[in-house]
Design a protein around this nucleic acid. Structure first.
Lengths: 220, 220
DNA sequence: ACCTTAAGCGGACTTCGGTCCGCTTTATTG
DNA sequence: CAATAAAGCGGACCGAAGTCCGCTTAAGGT
């Protein structure tokens, strides 16, 4: 109920600013030299530890220790464990973003909105499946997951594409977009692939079906 | 990776048995007298503490203490914090279940499947909104949330109704049902109502739209 | 160069969920 | 009614996330 580490903190709590593209890349105030160095060491150490022992064994103290840095420093820089994990996914997420915002069609602009939606989901499914443990571990719990920067960027994109498909006047695009986003939730993907044994192809076909149903005015 | 408390534990890990209706009500082996007494005292104490201080302040040790019982006992009985919280919701959940399985139409049998789906979502939204904090706190994280008994019962129900609406042969009912269930996720409901300020009416209208789009064969 | 100041640092500390294991109680059975 | 096995109990213990606060240090102004 209070901001723990006043100035920066990689996970902003405010809601209303225009987020697009500012995942964590350009800090409002650039980091001090030592801070930047420590940040890099921490990310490097964390990535190494994850690779060596799996994300489940990653502890904040372990990372601090491996980076030869105090525990408080890790929290100051990344806010919490999810923040650190999200930072580890930042590169992937940013290039995905670039791809669907300004990359080549059909993911990027140029193709019809429906096809862009198809491509968007396909790529999201692929990225998530590829590093599922990371995405699962990075996902904050409860309602927090809807307020992370990457989620919001994706959401706004889906919302925009949906609006371009000629929804009827009585279609609630925002809610429909949330529903579509729900399909891409790492937890759901993990459940379906690991516990229900569904193939990526099946998930992708399901996505296309869902998009086709969501597009255009609502049925009679 | 191992079952911590061998014999009972209110959250079964197995997947394939026919669950329907066995939330926690009839234990496989009935509880020993002292165990049953302690269970009741724990639930009572927990409910009181939640009422007094809110679910966020509820700690397992606090409950144990208030029930004049050892901490280990709480864990033995309920598995973990989510298990305790789910037990607190059990009554609500069971009567909801009865209502949609065998209650009066349109929630129960008798009405067309589409109307039953409409009613189902409406009621789920209402129940969740009514005790949102509890539902949020009781929700296990990551993929675990798909394996709780209440989730699975709801899911199978939606799946069944969907199958009754004449989906085309190329419709993946299971995936569609998961999508519908995603709309009813307490975390999403909490986000939409609290952080985006959406009205219950709007959410319900969104649900009806979603159902209408999900029903029947997929569009061209 | 020096001074000032605020960002940054570190690690002890708190809190809480979850586990362990030796002891106690219940229920069954002969 | 005793004996006994197994379910139950309790609280010490552990690990990890997150907090706090006094000390250090980089950076910009004079």
């Amino acid at each position: 109920m209070s901001q723990p580490y006043p100035p920066s903190a990689e996970r902003p709590e405010s809601f209303d600013e225009p987020v697009l593209m500012q995942l964590s890349a350009p800090e409002a105030t650039p980091l001090r030299a030592d801070a930047a160095r420590n940040r890099a060491r921490l990310l490097e150490a964390a990535a190494r530890l994850v690779e060596e022992q799996g994300v489940a064994r990653l502890t904040m103290e372990g990372v601090a220790c491996a980076a030869a840095v105090g525990k408080g420093t890790v929290f100051r820089r990344f806010g919490d464990r999810n923040g650190l994990l999200m930072a580890l996914l930042d590169h992937t997420e940013q290039s995905f973003q670039r791809a669907f915002i300004s990359g080549p069609a059909p993911l990027g602009p140029g193709a019809p909105a429906v096809e862009r939606l198809h491509a968007f989901g396909g790529q999201a499914l692929r990225l998530t499946a590829e590093r599922l443990d990371m995405y699962l571990a990075a996902e904050p719990e409860s309602t927090r997951r809807f307020t992370t920067a990457p989620y919001r960027v994706r959401f706004m994109h889906v919302c925009m594409l949906l609006r371009q498909t000629g929804p009827g006047p009585d279609t609630d695009t925002e809610l429909l977009a949330q529903t579509l986003m729900g399909y891409l939730d790492p937890a759901l993907i993990g459940h379906l692939t690991r516990q229900r044994g569904m193939s990526p192809e099946r998930l992708e076909a399901g996505w296309r079906d869902l998009v086709d149903r969501s597009v255009g005015p609502r049925p009679v």
